[in-house]
Amino acid sequence: MKKVSFAEFGGPDVLHLIDAEEPHAGPGQVRIAVRAAGVNPVDWRIREGQVLGAHPVELPAGVGLDAAGVVDEVGEGVEGVAVGDRVFGEGASTYAEFAVLSAWARMPEGLTFEEAAGYPSVVETALRIIDQVGVRPGQTLLVSGASGGVGSAVLQIARERGISVIGTAGAANQDYLRSLGAVATTYGEGWVERVRQLGGVDAALDLAGSGVIRELVELTGDPQKVVSIADLGAPDLGVRFSGVAGSVPDALAEAARLIAAGKLHIPVEKSYTLAEAAAAHVDSHAGHARGRRVIVP
């Protein structure tokens, strides 16, 4: 089978499309014929060797955590899923023609494989950090870098929970943020004052890692009310860096519920082939997405 792999840590050029042996489902796992794989910032952080504590890597290694596809092997002890089922979930080395998933859920009706592949990690992350930052219904959450996959999920989950959101993004994504229920403003010079003019902020999330931790602490008045998933230096300022996943099966079940209820939709901004994985990482690193990027084998 074809698979994206890297044999050393480094830039996008370390990624190579190789011929590899097919993986097989072990106990508690399923194997899927991959129809689409989600591209996440953690993928290139792993490739660069940034997050070895949370994601140990043995080289050479595959790439990718999220995927959607058709089950073609069911491991020992697995119940409730059968060969031929359409599922989305998390596993390992998902930038490939076949991948093993350790957590999955059935795809909601009407969802394409490309769309489904964009949900697992971002919804788990969104649910986790909303809970960790301690924001409650009736309060206001500031989301810095709100137009990407995690931001899109945070805005919609917050709206469903009765939490008001102020989101920052580039000028081209202001209407997109508003369509997801947020009060939108641009980042860049003067952004702190623009946020203040929109009202008080009870908690804040840093999704972009753009060097705004001090300002988020200033706006909330408490470093304990700020969580970052993108700035590895956040703990130096007393802010929690959240990089370890919670219950992925629970997050997938909640994602499926919200999608089926019409309360969560994350668009696919761009699709890439396996051979274009390096380009996908370059684009992901650059940010400014509106929704998700996926790889289609």
Rank of each mutant, 00 (worst) to 15 (best):
Lys3Gly: 08
Lys3His: 12
Val4Thr: 04
Phe6Arg: 14
Glu8Trp: 14
Phe9Ala: 12
Pro12Ala: 08
His16Leu: 11
Leu17Phe: 02
Leu17Thr: 05
Asp19Arg: 13
Glu22Asn: 15
Ala33Tyr: 14
Pro41Ala: 04
Pro41Lys: 02
Asp43Val: 03
Ala54Ile: 07
Val57Arg: 01
Glu58Arg: 14
Pro60Gly: 08
Ala61Phe: 14
Ala61Ser: 15
Glu76His: 09
Gly77Met: 07
Gly80Asp: 03
Val83Ala: 02
Gly84Trp: 01
Gly89His: 07
Gly89Lys: 04
Tyr95Pro: 04
Ala99Leu: 02
Ala99Glu: 06
Val100Cys: 08
Ser102Leu: 14
Gly110Phe: 13
Leu111Asn: 10
Phe113Val: 05
Glu114Gln: 06
Ala116Gly: 04
Val123His: 05
Val123Thr: 04
Thr125Cys: 06
Leu127Phe: 13
Gln132Phe: 06
Thr140Tyr: 01
Leu142Arg: 10
Leu142Val: 08
Leu142Asn: 12
Val143Arg: 10
Val150Phe: 04
Val150His: 06
Ala153Arg: 04
Gln156Ala: 15
Ile157Met: 12
Arg159Tyr: 12
Arg159Asp: 15
Glu160Asn: 15
Ile163His: 10
Ile166Ser: 03
Ile166Gly: 03
Ala171Thr: 13
Gln174Val: 09
Leu177Asp: 13
Val183Ala: 13
Glu193Asp: 09
Arg194Pro: 04
Gly199Val: 04
Asp206Asn: 14
Asp206Phe: 11
Leu207Lys: 13
Pro223Val: 09
Gln224Leu: 11
Lys225Gly: 07
Ala230Tyr: 12
Leu237Val: 12
Phe241Lys: 07
Gly246Lys: 14
Val248Phe: 15
Pro249Lys: 04
Ile259His: 06
Ile266Phe: 15
Ile266His: 14
Glu269Arg: 00
Ala275Thr: 06
Ala277Ile: 00
Ala277Cys: 03
Ser284Asn: 03
Ser284Cys: 00
Arg293Asp: 07
Val294Asp: 01
Ile295Met: 05
